[in-house]
């Protein structure tokens, strides 16, 4: 890639757009999440602030901005303030290779999914730093859980994505979308239903969402690794959590659901519709199932998802080899 002034401007603009998308996504998702939680429990959810409570999330974020940043004694100052930043910054990079539309890709790199998976791992480091630096027993326990969970769930996730990569023969996300058709039966979800299922389970584990939200299990760890964070520090963790949710939804839409291709008219709207459908599904799951125990969480991963994903990968490779011999 040449570093001309055009590509420089392109990257600056796209990073700004990504920041805008992250903040807007957090506000919208908080509203959707609270409304859906309310409806599932047969109550109205946020209702009083603005028409149907639409301004509630904006008011909450204003409160969060104005809140005092309270730092407890005996924290490791450098790491304590570095942790929210390391949670937030890699996410900006992660959105760059995602093809939102046919011409709407910030950075069309050949190893797009490799870039995403490599930098998504940094989120775990920020959780570990936050839990360790805040010098709190709940923080350390939450951080330890976050690390063992994220490291475990990354493996079946990568295996599931790898089986799609086997089909396409490319790590470039734009080429993966190009290899799929407009109609649902031409999407990779029909070629790789097991990989889709494994990815769906492990993305909930990877983003620390209920029922796999062990690192921040309220009933046993108060708030886990971000117990000692308030104000903007907490806001950055919160933003990056929702941004990570949106990111895995975009990757899922790109890999399994045809990306920006859809019936009747291709375009960026299909990417957003699919990604937000997955987000709503994640919210639905959160308000349906109780939290699993930690040994159950790791058993699901190591005893079921990992062998299944290896089997799926092996079958994909074998069938592809046989097909290539025949034709």
């Amino acid at each position: 890639m040449d570093l001309s002034i055009v590509s420089f401007v392109q990257i600056i603009v796209s990073v700004l757009l990504v920041i805008a998308l992250m903040v807007a996504n957090a506000v919208v998702m908080v509203y959707i999440e609270r409304k859906m939680a309310g409806f599932i429990q047969r109550r109205p959810g946020p209702y009083e602030v603005g028409p149907y409570g639409t301004i509630q999330a904006v008011c909450d974020s204003m409160k969060l901005l104005a809140k005092q940043v309270f730092v407890p004694g005996n924290v490791d100052w450098l790491l304590y303030f570095l942790a929210p930043v390391t949670a937030f910054l890699p996410v900006l990079l992660l959105y760059l290779p995602i093809p939102f539309g046919p011409y709407l890709t910030a950075m069309n790199v050949d190893d797009g999914i490799l870039l995403i998976l490599a930098f998504a791992g940094l989120g775990v480091v920020s959780n570990l730093l936050a839990g360790w630096a805040s010098n709190n027993k709940y923080g350390v326990l939450g951080a330890a859980r976050a690390v063992s969970q994220s490291v475990a769930y990354e493996i079946p996730m990568i295996m599931a994505l790898l089986s799609v990569v086997f089909l396409t023969g490319s790590l470039n996300l734009t080429e993966i979308v190009d290899s799929q058709g407009s109609w649902p039966w031409q999407w990779n979800i029909f070629a790789q239903p097991f990989a889709f299922f494994i990815y769906l389970v492990s993305l909930i584990g990877e983003t620390n969402r209920a029922p796999f939200d062990l690192p921040e299990a309220e009933s046993e760890l108060t708030a886990g690794f971000h117990t000692e964070y308030s104000g903007m520090g907490f806001a950055l963790f919160f933003l990056s959590e929702y941004a990570n949710m949106l990111l895995v939804s975009f990757v899922c839409a790109t890999f399994f659901l045809g990306g920006w291709k859809g019936p009747f008219l291709d375009g960026f709207w299909w990417t957003f519709i699919k990604a937000y459908a997955i987000m709503v599904f994640m919210v639905w799951i959160r308000w349906t199932f109780p939290r699993v125990r930690f040994d159950q969480l790791l058993n699901i991963n190591w005893k079921w998802l990992l062998p299944l994903s290896i089997l799926n990968l092996w079958l994909t490779a074998a069938i592809l080899k046989i097909l290539s011999k025949i034709y």
């Binding site: 859906m36 309310g38 409806f39 599932i40 429990q41 047969r42 109550r43 109205p44 209702y47 639905w284 799951i285 308000w287 349906t288 199932f289």
Partner: peptide, 18 residues
């Protein structure tokens, strides 16, 4: 089964009185 129960509740009338 659990998901279908919450989906049914999602679209059923609310119990809250304003």
């Amino acid at each position: 089964v659990g998901l279908s129960i919450t989906a049914r509740f999602l679209f059923s009338p609310q119990k809250t009185v304003h």
